[in-house]
Simulated assay, not measured.
Amino acid sequence: MYADGDVPGLLRRVGATDLDRTTAMMRRLHPGREIEQCEGSNLGDGVHPSEGDGVRSRPAGRGGHRRSGSEIDAPSELPEHWGAASAGRRLALHAMHSAVDRLAFAAWEDGHLVRSLSLSPDDGIIENIGEPLPFELPHWAGDHPADIAP
């Protein structure tokens, strides 16, 4: 999410999508790709887009595939122009993959990565860049231990 201000507060006040601005941002984030509008959805329904609704990309060293937020292991490795697109604002990334209990999140301020954390029970801490954000502190202090299945 690219935001001018506090992300949780903005999500609480979200209105209708500006399709022209969204299309322009998608073209900026995916240069050289064909971008077309599809039927809208809400955040809950749009987490797992239907086949063909995702943006096709070709990460270095891999074949082309549909990319979704659940595939992010190290947020700091996102394309540099994605972070740069946050110039003058905030970029917040949140990705989860329930099959492997992986969580990744990151924050960029004015185009610069300030925090990235990615972890899972099997892999441990995959990436831990920057100072923990205030909401993380109780977790790091052990106030909210995870239930670990043997």
Score class of each variant (00 low, 15 high):
residue 59 P to G: 05
residue 38 C to L: 14
residue 46 G to V: 04
residue 118 S to G: 15
residue 9 G to N: 04
residue 111 G to T: 07
residue 88 G to F: 03
residue 104 A to W: 01
residue 25 M to R: 08
residue 85 A to Q: 00
residue 106 A to G: 05
residue 25 M to A: 12
residue 110 D to C: 10
residue 9 G to Q: 04
residue 12 R to N: 06
residue 94 H to D: 11
residue 92 A to P: 02
residue 59 P to K: 06
residue 15 G to A: 07
residue 149 A to T: 13
residue 35 I to Y: 01
residue 97 H to A: 15
residue 69 G to H: 08
residue 43 L to T: 04
residue 145 P to N: 06
residue 150 P to Q: 10
residue 86 S to Q: 02
residue 67 R to P: 05
residue 71 E to G: 13
residue 36 E to Y: 03
residue 97 H to F: 09
residue 78 L to H: 02
residue 135 F to T: 10
residue 61 G to Q: 04
residue 104 A to L: 05
residue 37 Q to I: 07
residue 22 T to E: 09
residue 141 A to S: 09
residue 122 D to W: 14
residue 68 S to N: 12
residue 9 G to P: 03
residue 118 S to T: 10
residue 97 H to G: 14
residue 149 A to D: 11
residue 131 E to N: 14
residue 66 R to C: 10
residue 108 W to F: 08
residue 38 C to F: 12
residue 120 S to V: 14
residue 137 L to Q: 05
residue 150 P to A: 15
residue 53 D to P: 02
residue 73 D to H: 13
residue 131 E to I: 14
residue 18 D to R: 05
residue 54 G to A: 09
residue 25 M to E: 02
residue 86 S to K: 01
residue 115 R to W: 13
residue 77 E to K: 12
residue 105 F to G: 03
residue 117 L to Q: 09
residue 21 R to Q: 11
residue 72 I to R: 04
residue 10 L to Q: 02
residue 79 P to H: 10
residue 59 P to L: 07
residue 54 G to L: 03
residue 123 D to I: 10
residue 30 H to E: 02
residue 44 G to C: 03
residue 28 R to T: 06
residue 12 R to Y: 02
residue 66 R to I: 10
residue 93 L to G: 07
residue 140 W to Q: 11
residue 141 A to Y: 06
residue 133 L to K: 11
residue 111 G to S: 08
residue 125 I to L: 14
residue 133 L to I: 12
residue 133 L to Q: 14
residue 100 V to N: 06
residue 149 A to F: 12
residue 108 W to I: 07
residue 117 L to C: 12
residue 52 G to K: 03
residue 8 P to E: 03
residue 126 I to V: 15
residue 41 S to N: 03
residue 110 D to L: 10
residue 30 H to R: 07
residue 76 S to L: 01
residue 124 G to H: 13
residue 22 T to Q: 09
residue 116 S to H: 11
residue 148 I to T: 04
residue 52 G to A: 00
residue 93 L to F: 13
residue 137 L to M: 07
residue 35 I to Q: 01
residue 53 D to Q: 08
residue 1 M to P: 05
residue 11 L to W: 02
residue 58 R to N: 10
residue 122 D to E: 15
residue 133 L to M: 15
residue 31 P to G: 04
residue 5 G to Y: 01
residue 102 R to E: 03
residue 127 E to W: 13
residue 61 G to S: 05
residue 28 R to K: 07
residue 54 G to Y: 00
residue 6 D to G: 07
residue 67 R to T: 11
residue 90 R to P: 06
residue 87 A to G: 11
residue 60 A to K: 13
residue 113 L to W: 09
residue 143 D to T: 08
residue 69 G to Y: 04
residue 23 T to F: 00
residue 73 D to Q: 11
residue 118 S to D: 11
residue 105 F to P: 01
residue 85 A to N: 00
residue 85 A to V: 00
residue 138 P to A: 08
residue 150 P to D: 14
residue 22 T to L: 15
residue 60 A to W: 08
